[in-house]
Amino acid sequence: MLDDRARMEAAKKEKVEQILAEFQLQEEDLKKVMRRMQKEMDRGLRLETHEEASVKMLPTYVRSTPEGSEVGDFLSLDLGGTNFRVMLVKVGEGEEGQWSVKTKHQMYSIPEDAMTGTAEMLFDYISECISDFLDKHQMKHKKLPLGFTFSFPVRHEDIDKGILLNWTKGFKASGAEGNNVVGLLRDAIKRRGDFEMDVVAMVNDTVATMISCYYEDHQCEVGMIVGTGCNACYMEEMQNVELVEGDEGRMCVNTEWGAFGDSGELDEFLLEYDRLVDESSANPGQQLYEKLIGGKYMGELVRLVLLRLVDENLLFHGEASEQLRTRGAFETRFVSQVESDTGDRKQIYNILSTLGLRPSTTDCDIVRRACESVSTRAAHMCSAGLAGVINRMRESRSEDVMRITVGVDGSVYKLHPSFKERFHASVRRLTPSCEITFIESEEGSGRGAALVSAVACKKACMLGQ
């Protein structure tokens, strides 16, 4: 009897593995994704193909990295998701002549009506938060230079001027797309009239992360975010950046690689679950690469896999709870928690219980395998993109072996128990001629924006502006 049951459990697990095998990517698959990513990057950089390229390769006008001589107080704003952060950054000489960066910050959550109302409502709310922060720190009387981390696709015309191309991540505030974001912020500050600010720089969160990590390690020339969304930036040779005049030196390019796949480059790798996630998203047909990796989508992918296993009578005796059938019910943090389970399955059992399920031991094991399959594919897909960037940098610099540091931020990278190990191992397999160091950014977005502002202020002083 026991043997029969054991055989049935083994057969069930084997069927589960057959279904989950769809998520496995072979090294040849990853090399294919990497080569296609490089081709799209090239198209994004070139003037004649930029418009139709899915990977936009947006110039950021960040050319210099901090040298350690900029000092002063800077205000930093960070808008990239449902939370908005205001930070005071003091850049100065530390002990023994070292450079020191001290920060104080406060988080504000953005109400739904500000995210989806008008641009005026959104930026009025942001300036209200700045006003509140300055009151708390008794700094209303000071006109501070301000660095703005704005983590949406922007076409820069200068370091302090950028046109919002399109909202992502659930934002829909009308009247912002096609307009200068810094102008919208300046107008809102003017409307309030109770404080003055000098907006000197606007950067993407990947750029802010790279600059913040450069402060720790001067070989950091790539910034990457794996959180709600997924994106990367890197220092490109100016001669390859056709959208900006000049051939000397390097400029940081914001790849906006989340949109890779929007022209069909990933079609052969998309599964039924991916198509369902895409169809029910706020932007169907867009940001397809990001939807395979980002935390906004990972939990939902797992939920759809679990429903398939229920329908195949391989999980929960073929019956799903009402909660499990509800879109968004299986949160991405559950994926991390399930994979963090120590082996007694308590954590998995508790999560499934909150979803109205009474799982068996085998159910718990199957749910864990589903989570591992989805998150491992995410790590491997992400590795193909980064390997594409790094191999490109090595080739354009004609280096036999390139040493490089990548600064990384984002909740999936930082909080998932195995993502970074799987990701690092896969990147290294795909970049055999590179020695890569990964560092995690601390308060990256805010500190990085302030350091970019410090560079901009120093330049302005040198130019006598």
Rank of each mutant, 00 (worst) to 15 (best):
residue 225 I to E: 00
residue 46 R to C: 07
residue 2 L to S: 11
residue 158 D to R: 05
residue 460 A to I: 15
residue 227 G to K: 00
residue 308 R to E: 13
residue 228 T to M: 00
residue 417 P to E: 07
residue 347 Q to G: 12
residue 445 S to P: 03
residue 36 R to A: 12
residue 381 M to R: 03
residue 145 P to R: 15
residue 163 I to H: 04
residue 408 V to R: 02
residue 115 M to V: 07
residue 332 T to Y: 00
residue 159 I to K: 00
residue 326 T to W: 14
residue 389 V to L: 15
residue 158 D to P: 01
residue 22 E to A: 06
residue 350 N to C: 01
residue 227 G to T: 03
residue 210 M to Y: 02
residue 168 T to V: 03
residue 236 E to M: 11
residue 52 E to N: 06
residue 27 E to I: 04
residue 29 D to M: 05
residue 211 I to A: 15
residue 178 G to V: 02
residue 3 D to C: 11
residue 68 G to Y: 10
residue 212 S to R: 00
residue 307 L to V: 10
residue 239 Q to R: 12
residue 393 M to T: 09
residue 28 E to A: 13
residue 430 L to P: 04
residue 192 R to E: 05
residue 344 D to N: 08
residue 134 L to Y: 00
residue 106 Q to I: 10
residue 197 M to Y: 01
residue 249 G to D: 08
residue 421 E to D: 08
residue 88 L to G: 07
residue 213 C to R: 06
residue 251 M to N: 09
residue 145 P to I: 11
residue 227 G to I: 02
residue 59 P to V: 05
residue 198 D to V: 08
residue 85 R to L: 02
residue 209 T to S: 15
residue 226 V to A: 07
residue 217 D to F: 11
residue 373 S to A: 13
residue 248 E to S: 12
residue 446 G to S: 15
residue 260 F to M: 12
residue 201 A to S: 00
residue 186 R to N: 01
residue 239 Q to D: 13
residue 311 D to C: 14
residue 248 E to L: 07
residue 448 G to L: 05
residue 454 A to Y: 01
residue 277 V to C: 06
residue 193 G to H: 11
residue 173 A to F: 01
residue 17 E to R: 12
residue 364 C to H: 02
residue 109 S to E: 06
residue 140 K to I: 05
residue 8 M to H: 10
residue 247 D to K: 14
residue 279 E to D: 07
residue 270 L to S: 13
residue 316 F to W: 14
residue 62 V to Y: 12
residue 462 M to G: 14
residue 4 D to F: 12
residue 293 I to W: 03
residue 187 D to K: 06
residue 237 E to L: 03
residue 453 S to Y: 05
residue 150 F to H: 04
residue 24 Q to I: 06
residue 181 V to T: 00
residue 231 N to L: 07
residue 371 C to Q: 04
residue 24 Q to Y: 13
residue 284 P to E: 14
residue 10 A to T: 11
residue 276 L to N: 11
residue 419 F to E: 02
residue 131 S to W: 05
residue 421 E to C: 12
residue 191 R to S: 09
residue 147 G to Y: 05
residue 364 C to M: 10
residue 153 P to N: 01
residue 241 V to W: 04
residue 6 A to D: 08
residue 99 W to S: 15
residue 390 I to Q: 04
residue 389 V to M: 15
residue 206 T to I: 01
residue 139 M to C: 03
residue 241 V to A: 08
residue 425 A to F: 06
residue 367 V to P: 01
residue 402 M to G: 13
residue 54 S to G: 08
residue 331 E to I: 15
residue 23 F to L: 10
residue 463 L to V: 10
residue 181 V to S: 01
residue 180 N to I: 09
residue 123 F to N: 00
residue 199 V to S: 05
residue 88 L to A: 06
residue 356 G to K: 10
residue 177 E to N: 01
residue 363 D to L: 06
residue 361 T to H: 14
residue 274 D to F: 06
residue 305 V to Y: 09
residue 365 D to I: 14
residue 184 L to P: 00
residue 339 E to W: 04
residue 232 A to E: 01
residue 384 A to W: 00
residue 298 M to E: 08
residue 447 R to T: 09
residue 380 H to A: 11
residue 120 E to V: 13
residue 380 H to R: 13
residue 52 E to P: 11
residue 339 E to T: 09
residue 293 I to S: 02
residue 34 M to P: 04
residue 174 S to F: 03
residue 386 L to S: 10
residue 3 D to I: 09
residue 121 M to E: 08
residue 39 K to V: 12
residue 93 E to H: 12
residue 355 L to G: 07
residue 232 A to T: 12
residue 73 D to N: 15
residue 190 K to N: 14
residue 138 Q to T: 12
residue 183 G to E: 10
residue 108 Y to N: 01
residue 53 A to M: 00
residue 38 Q to K: 06
residue 195 F to N: 04
residue 181 V to I: 03
residue 327 R to E: 15
residue 367 V to H: 05
residue 388 G to K: 00
residue 364 C to T: 09
residue 208 A to N: 07
residue 56 K to F: 06
residue 363 D to H: 06
residue 217 D to R: 07
residue 260 F to S: 01
residue 206 T to Y: 00
residue 129 C to I: 03
residue 287 Q to I: 08
residue 294 G to R: 04
residue 293 I to G: 04
residue 431 T to I: 12
residue 144 L to Q: 04
residue 173 A to S: 02
residue 309 L to N: 11
residue 144 L to G: 04
residue 450 A to D: 00
residue 306 L to I: 06
residue 343 G to I: 08
residue 190 K to P: 05
residue 457 C to H: 06
residue 24 Q to R: 09
residue 281 S to Q: 12
residue 235 M to A: 03
residue 432 P to H: 10
residue 178 G to H: 01
residue 81 G to P: 05
residue 71 V to K: 15
residue 69 S to I: 07
residue 295 G to P: 08
residue 217 D to V: 14
residue 103 T to I: 02
residue 112 E to Q: 12
residue 446 G to N: 07
residue 292 L to I: 11
residue 273 Y to I: 09
residue 86 V to I: 10
residue 418 S to K: 15
residue 430 L to E: 05
residue 284 P to G: 08
residue 394 R to F: 08
residue 314 L to I: 13
residue 65 T to C: 15
residue 361 T to W: 08
residue 80 G to K: 05
residue 141 H to G: 12
residue 178 G to F: 03
residue 274 D to M: 04
residue 76 S to M: 00
residue 195 F to G: 03
residue 394 R to S: 09
residue 125 Y to E: 01
residue 192 R to T: 12
residue 169 K to A: 07
residue 392 R to L: 07
residue 186 R to H: 01
residue 353 S to Q: 10
residue 19 I to F: 14
residue 177 E to W: 02
residue 243 L to Y: 00
residue 194 D to E: 11
residue 368 R to C: 06
residue 62 V to E: 04
residue 188 A to K: 00
residue 359 P to M: 10
residue 8 M to G: 08
residue 151 S to T: 00
residue 213 C to F: 02
residue 159 I to E: 02
residue 335 V to N: 14
residue 309 L to P: 01
residue 270 L to A: 15
residue 432 P to K: 05
residue 248 E to A: 10
residue 219 Q to M: 15
residue 413 Y to R: 00
residue 137 H to W: 07
residue 421 E to V: 13
residue 342 T to Y: 10
residue 240 N to L: 07
residue 44 G to P: 00
residue 427 V to T: 12
residue 216 E to Q: 13
residue 405 T to R: 13
residue 230 C to M: 06
residue 319 E to I: 12
residue 377 R to E: 01
residue 133 F to C: 01
residue 183 G to H: 07
residue 97 G to I: 10
residue 8 M to T: 06
residue 265 E to Y: 03
residue 417 P to G: 09
residue 74 F to T: 07
residue 121 M to C: 14
residue 376 T to D: 08
residue 383 S to P: 05
residue 27 E to W: 08
residue 131 S to V: 03
residue 61 Y to N: 03
residue 427 V to C: 08
residue 364 C to Q: 09
residue 216 E to A: 14
residue 451 L to E: 00
residue 27 E to R: 09
residue 131 S to N: 05
residue 101 V to E: 07
residue 145 P to F: 12
residue 105 H to T: 04
residue 464 G to P: 12
residue 327 R to M: 14
